[in-house]
Nucleic acid binder design. Structure first.
Lengths: 340, 340
DNA sequence: CTGTTAGCGCCTTCAT
DNA sequence: ATGAAGGCGCTAACAG
């Protein structure tokens, strides 16, 4: 029942049209090898006329390089990954590579991630950027001697893997320090489960550590994921006597603000609230979140550049690149407010 | 300088390892054709042992179908496209297809979009979903008899193209009607340029129309893009005497709220504000935006399903699928407030 | 049920 | 500078 689709023209069709051999066409179109100006001209006209588009499969099959890098992302609906993707795309494009992205709809489970990874490898990508805080490194290792790999967004020390990530400990420490400077004595930290996100856990852990380091006792509210912050805060805010709530993401910080709002309270008058991320739609002056900005774009750009350097043999070294973010002083954190 | 990368094993290696012919291997691994349980067993063991991953290029070259659909998106940093991507990914996965996404970093210009489109075609995708409100249909047409195409997010009437989109006129009308019901007499509409976004323009236009239809005069503030709403509102709010501002997106609605906040005002007490989209991080009860929700997930899912139906020859018909969203009554719109 | 054979579209020596 | 020929890894007819 399908409408007859015109078979895509091949170099043979062009060769016939232009009255030259297929190798001449190949040379003219790929830019490799010598061709006379006249031949090139004829070939190009024929190609345009027939609407020729090279078959990347056939090309990749013989040349065993596809000028394509595979990117495995955890979940595109999170601004972090969306921005990462965009930054990578741009960086790759600048160096003449194409990006093929694989994601699972929801959070990528290990099995899904592996399948996606195999698909990418199957597509003969020249390199791989893996950014899925959940995929254990053991699963990645089997691929490292088949294709260069860069892990983005988390520290990865396996031999043969370069990783680019943000120093979560630094961010958590800086934020906690900021609140301590503001005079807060009793601070709640919403701590996400390690299994859910290494990064969220790391930054929260650093906050806790920093608060302890100055002799104060943090109030730790464990949550499975940052999306459950609302529930945790609602349940435990009363009587906790905290003057500040530190959240693992900007999204959960907004949730915290909502809990306060429902009680007729607001930040920072009644309680200080901090987030973490500093990008995306929530990064708006209207909300004015006090948060820590992750250098997403830089992570993306750096990842791609290091990967392409590896692919092109410009370097043989694995590296650990740790990027730092910066504190954003918004309006949701203030000096120690009156205690209830 | 590159570390020697182990050549990927081919079916020949597996055939040797398993002691069978390469076609037996092909049959066993691809699931096509009959194979004895014993052979299959041997082959699978060998494949696992050697870490075999099929070469999608070779496979696609001969079978001329790749079980891959290409998706061209305008800009991944916008939640709309990110969510669309995710929904498509999920739908495709459910039917055994892989999604290859192409985007430009910034807004996809026509030239970029075309290049990306060619790349996708070059990869021999079995079908294409195009979602770039800017790419003129003339540019798409040349591809329609090479590969099935679905346009997502905008109405497209060219022969051979199925399109799935949201009824922006309906959304704009519903929102405007809502405000009129609330008693607003003088309403500002922030209208984005048609060249920038057909959708944003269409919904704004519908708002204007609806307001006129009941004999009132809308105050139209033209902007090049929704991202410039802050400037436009700041410049023109004073003395405009409006009691409500209708914005083309939720992002710009938040910008409007910020303009009010800087004047010590707020919605809906001093001025009603509405957005448009109803998804992503801004869709949070804390903001409580009165807005119109676009059925992004549904657009994505439907697009993929229609595309795959076309690919698999289940249908030969082009369709125009118009989906409807729904009004979200938040807290930023209220009854006619006191006039200043 | 299995092995043999012929390409898929392209690039790449090798002659010319 | 150009054409002829071989093969990349795989599937899909064929025979057996």
């Amino acid at each position: 029942m399908t409408r007859a689709r015109g078979k895509a023209p091949t170099i043979l069709d062009i060769a016939a049209e232009a009255g030259v051999s297929k190798s001449a066409v190949s040379r003219a179109l790929s830019g490799q090898g010598e061709v006379s100006a006249e031949t090139r001209e004829k070939v190009e006209r024929a190609a345009r006329k027939l609407g020729y588009v090279a078959n990347a499969m056939a090309r990749g099959l013989v040349s065993s390089q596809t000028k394509t890098v595979g990117v495995l992302l955890r979940d595109m609906t999170r601004p972090f990954y969306a921005l990462l993707q965009t930054a990578m795309q741009r960086a790759a494009e600048d160096r003449g590579y194409q990006v093929v992205t694989a994601t699972s709809a929801a959070d990528l489970g290990v099995a899904d991630a592996l399948r996606a990874l195999r698909n990418l490898v199957s597509l003969q990508v020249d390199g791989l950027v893996v950014s899925s805080a959940r995929l254990p490194s053991e699963e990645i290792v089997p691929f490292i001697d088949r294709v260069p790999i860069v892990v983005a967004g988390r520290r990865e020390t396996s031999r043969g893997i370069t990783s680019v990530f943000c120093d979560d400990a630094d961010g958590g420490t800086v934020l906690a320090e900021h609140l301590l400077q503001l005079g807060h004595e009793r601070i709640a930290v919403v701590l996400a489960d390690e299994a859910y996100s290494l990064s969220q856990y790391a930054r929260g852990f650093a906050m806790v550590e920093r608060i302890r380091a100055v002799g104060k006792t943090p109030v730790v509210w464990h949550v499975a994921t940052d999306r459950e912050a609302t529930q945790a805060i609602t349940d435990q805010l009363d009587g906790a006597g905290v003057t500040a709530i530190m959240c693992p993401t900007d999204g959960s910080a907004v949730d915290a603000l909502e809990v306060l709002r429902q009680r007729g309270q607001s930040a920072p008058e009644d309680c200080t609230v901090t987030g973490y991320d500093g990008f995306g739609p929530l990064n708006t002056p209207y909300l004015g979140l006090t948060t820590f900005r992750q250098p997403v774009e830089e992570i993306g750009r750096t990842s791609i550049n290091l990967l392409l350097d590896k692919i092109e043999g410009k370097t043989d070294q694995d590296r650990l690149v740790e990027l730092r973010g910066s504190l954003i002083e918004g309006r949701t954190a203030g000096r120690l407010p009156r205690l209830p």
